[in-house]
């Protein structure tokens, strides 16, 4: 069958496509997920086909079903955990955290450099934008791979020049840069310019007017501002404070810094604002604290868990209860 000539109505009438969309056959799911990846030009027709099926079948939308399922799952597991030993959960978290730490140790460098913040003219720029709650992987023409976090935007040229590879970032991204000594790779994020020669590093620039940071995982990097420059060693991080216009070096915890790209949500001594930001970026839910407890110092690591599971864990350890309305989660004191 020549699926490439298929239109939405043909996909929507295809037995195996229906089985894929309704998740009734794992083989069909694997086949169509792969087919969609290989044929991105057909994504519009596929999306239209999925809408047609959704319209004609009586069923609960997949995301709503997932939420219901998670509620059911936490209902049955939480019961048992509380009935057995309440402390057990925390033990799991710390165990998980240390394992992740061991697995993800790596290197970071920063070089100094004078860099003029003037992207070349006459280049066509493309934009990749993620809303809150959505992560994506961007592969650049030179083979570099960028994992872009939720609530982040990456600007990059349609094709790189022969002299340099230049990009602009708002938000947070993890870069695996293809080595090419003849063309430096430069990322502009807020006031920071990061130049690398084939490396892995994380840049967080959600609020470039306040704080931008670069954490190097592997390779060589130099970071400059208009009047300052820093060189970092592996595992080091540099943060730029926009109000003081200063650069500060520190170590970093690889898991809390780069765990997001593995779908891990990590809080270490996090205040409420940090927890709320993490949840908004990862899940697209806003968190509002209506409890009298304002001084948070929260620790927790979550791996591919639903927003409900995360919130329930937070509420459990902080003795709060929650209410969700319209993608806003309200926390209040447990009576």
């Amino acid at each position: 069958m020549d699926y490439l000539n298929y239109k939405a109505e043909d996909f929507a009438a295809d037995e195996s496509f229906i089985a894929y969309h309704l998740k009734r056959d794992p083989k069909a799911v694997a086949f169509w997920e792969n087919w969609g990846r290989l044929n991105p030009e057909k994504l519009d027709e596929i999306a239209a086909a999925e809408r047609l099926i959704d319209m004609l079948a009586i069923r609960l939308a997949q995301d709503e079903f997932d939420l219901e399922k998670q509620k059911m799952q936490s209902f049955i597991t939480d019961r048992q955990v509380i009935a057995l030993t309440p402390a057990r959960k925390n033990y799991y978290w710390s165990l998980a955290a240390s394992i992740f730490l061991i697995l993800s140790i790596s290197v970071t460098f920063l070089y100094k450099q004078r860099f003029q913040n003037t992207p070349e003219l006459a280049v066509e720029w493309l934009k990749h934008e993620n809303p809150d709650g959505k992560k994506s992987r961007v592969r650049l023409p030179d083979g570099s791979v960028i994992v872009l976090n939720g609530g982040s935007t990456l600007h990059y040229p349609k094709s790189f020049s022969s002299k340099k590879r230049e990009l602009k970032l708002d938000g947070e991204a993890y870069f695996s840069v293809a080595h090419d000594a003849s063309r430096p790779f430069i990322v502009h994020a807020g006031a920071l310019n990061t130049q690398v020669l084939g490396t892995e590093f994380n840049i967080s620039a959600y609020d470039p007017d306040k704080n931008v940071s670069v954490s190097l995982v592997r390779g060589k990097v130099k970071v400059t501002t208009a009047n300052d420059q820093v060189m970092l060693m592996p595992g080091q991080k540099v943060s730029y404070d926009a109000s003081q216009k200063t650069l500060k070096e520190s170590g970093f915890d690889i898991e809390s810094e780069t765990g997001w790209k593995e779908d891990k949500l990590v809080f270490k001594n996090a205040d409420f604002a940090a927890v709320a930001k993490g949840i908004q970026r990862t899940y697209g839910y806003k968190l509002i604290n209506q409890s009298p407890d304002k001084n948070w110092n929260y620790n927790g690591t979550f791996h591919q868990q639903s927003v409900i599971q995360v919130i329930e864990n937070i509420c459990f350890s902080k003795h709060l209860k929650y209410r969700i309305n319209n993608k806003i989660i309200y926390l209040s004191a447990e009576k």
């Binding site: 079903f65 219901e68 399922k69 799952q73 049955i76």
Partner: peptide, 18 residues
């Protein structure tokens, strides 16, 4: 058995909803 229970849930949910 929690896993068996969740399998039952997943298998029958959409048909029950319909």
């Amino acid at each position: 058995d929690e896993k068996a229970f969740m399998r039952l849930y997943e298998t029958h949910y959409q048909a029950l909803y319909s």
